[in-house]
Computed example of a mutant assay.
Amino acid sequence: MTISARLEHHLSDLGLHYSMIPHPYAATAAEVAEAAHVPGDHLAKSVLIHMEEGPMLAVVPSNQQVDLTALQSLMQKRLGLAPETEMKEVFNDCDLGAAPPVGEAYDVPTIVDDSLSGLDKIWFEGGDHTTLIEMRGRDFDKMMKDAEHGSFCCLH
């Protein structure tokens, strides 16, 4: 049960309280929600977006997907999903597919879907496929206060 060093340092710097929740190995966000017994709409997942200026992190509930058309319209930029190689490069202290939704810890601009704001509790990947971070929704909102916010997800 571990979390990425950069994430741990970032949370410590912000003074936010969190818990590490172990769960059986799960590769996809839907499997994580099921394995950890958490609601999919309260599990934040990271989607790395590729733009000409560099990567950007889009954060949506695990039971949703990024609507690239809506996000492109919101950002007024051409964008697409980042390749795995870029994901490995940006989140080099995390297992592939287990990146935390905290772009600030990785110097990556972040946009958070509005549906993740104002929740009572929220969970997210901590850098491996067997540990979730659990925190109060208001602490997550505080951590994401400098991120952009908008509505850009849809059911998949």
Results as ranks from 00 to 15, higher is better:
residue 7 L to T: 11
residue 104 E to H: 07
residue 14 L to D: 08
residue 80 G to V: 02
residue 87 M to E: 13
residue 60 V to L: 05
residue 97 G to S: 04
residue 39 P to W: 02
residue 42 H to E: 10
residue 129 H to I: 02
residue 135 M to Y: 03
residue 94 C to S: 04
residue 44 A to H: 01
residue 115 S to H: 06
residue 142 K to F: 15
residue 135 M to P: 06
residue 149 H to D: 00
residue 38 V to Q: 01
residue 37 H to Q: 10
residue 82 A to I: 09
residue 45 K to T: 00
residue 120 D to F: 03
residue 104 E to L: 05
residue 96 L to K: 10
residue 41 D to L: 07
residue 61 P to I: 12
residue 123 W to N: 08
residue 136 R to F: 12
residue 14 L to N: 14
residue 26 A to I: 00
residue 59 V to Q: 03
residue 12 S to H: 15
residue 69 T to K: 15
residue 21 I to V: 15
residue 131 T to D: 04
residue 45 K to L: 00
residue 155 L to W: 06
residue 32 V to S: 08
residue 141 D to Y: 05
residue 110 T to W: 04
residue 41 D to V: 02
residue 103 G to D: 13
residue 122 I to C: 01
residue 143 M to H: 05
residue 84 E to S: 11
residue 55 P to S: 12
residue 78 R to M: 05
residue 21 I to A: 03
residue 98 A to C: 06
residue 122 I to Y: 01
residue 91 F to C: 02
residue 116 L to R: 08
residue 18 Y to L: 11
residue 118 G to I: 01
residue 70 A to V: 02
residue 64 Q to T: 01
residue 154 C to D: 10
residue 65 Q to K: 15
residue 35 A to M: 07
residue 35 A to Y: 08
residue 15 G to E: 06
residue 134 E to K: 10
residue 81 L to M: 15
residue 138 R to W: 13
residue 50 H to T: 09
residue 30 A to D: 13
residue 45 K to A: 01
residue 23 H to P: 03
residue 4 S to V: 02
residue 95 D to G: 12
residue 144 M to D: 01
residue 117 S to Y: 09
residue 72 Q to N: 14
residue 15 G to V: 03
